[in-house]
């Protein structure tokens, strides 16, 4: 009955999560090259992947991709377990919790843009909460609050629109009304 070789059974699910996590990690790395005036203000491109995973494969898969992205991104950028890593971890945790709740919103009215904006606010909220408790005096953070919130709103909305376009698919949906131009996916 016992086998000598250790074999880890890999399911199709595992492969898919690994593939999507790799995508998210790639975006994290690409994003790290973009200069930012204030640390913490980033487009959060990897969240596009996480949101897509959430909408297509459920919350569990999204959580896996998020955690894998966090760890591997930390390893590759050399920030694993550094303060910045913990801030990102707190942001990801709150963002995932928010997504876990928000995905139960009726999707007739709330599309990817809502989810993305809420997740972005959760992300920045988690980061700022940890930073306020742990790193910086709250008074210093207070002045930056509007900047972070505005960035979350803008980048969250843009990412949400990208997710919505990607989900719409390359198949031109010539339904009843609206634009007839084929969606161009960047």
């Amino acid at each position: 009955m016992t086998r000598s070789a250790i074999e880890l059974p890999v399911t199709a699910d595992d492969r898919r999560i690994a593939r999507l996590a790799a995508l998210a990690i790639g975006l994290t790395l690409a994003e790290a090259a973009i200069p930012s005036p204030i640390p913490g203000v980033k487009p959060g491109l990897a969240n596009i992947v996480i949101l897509l995973v959430l909408l297509q494969y459920g919350w569990r898969a999204a959580a896996w991709v998020s955690v894998l992205r966090l760890l591997a991104g930390g390893l590759l950028l050399g920030s694993l377990f550094a303060p910045g890593f913990w801030l990102a971890a707190a942001g990801a945790l709150v963002s995932l919790s928010v997504l876990g709740l928000a995905r139960h919103l009726p999707d007739r009215y709330f599309g990817p843009v809502s989810l993305s904006v809420l997740a972005a606010f959760g992300h920045i909220g988690g980061q700022l909460a940890l930073a306020g408790i742990w790193l910086l005096p709250a008074a210093a953070l207070l002045k930056l609050l509007p900047v972070f919130a505005a960035a979350a709103l803008i980048f969250g909305a843009v990412n949400g629109v990208i997710v919505a376009r990607l989900l719409a698919g390359p198949v031109s949906s010539g339904r009843q009304s609206g634009s007839c131009t084929p969606p161009s996916i960047p």
Partner: peptide
């Protein structure tokens, strides 16, 4: 449909939050 009714609401609320902050 990229923007649904609730999305507009969320965006408006977000804008309000930014303004309040």
């Amino acid at each position: 449909m990229i923007l649904r009714a609730g999305d507009m609401g969320v965006l408006l609320l977000g804008g309000g939050l930014v303004a309040a902050l």
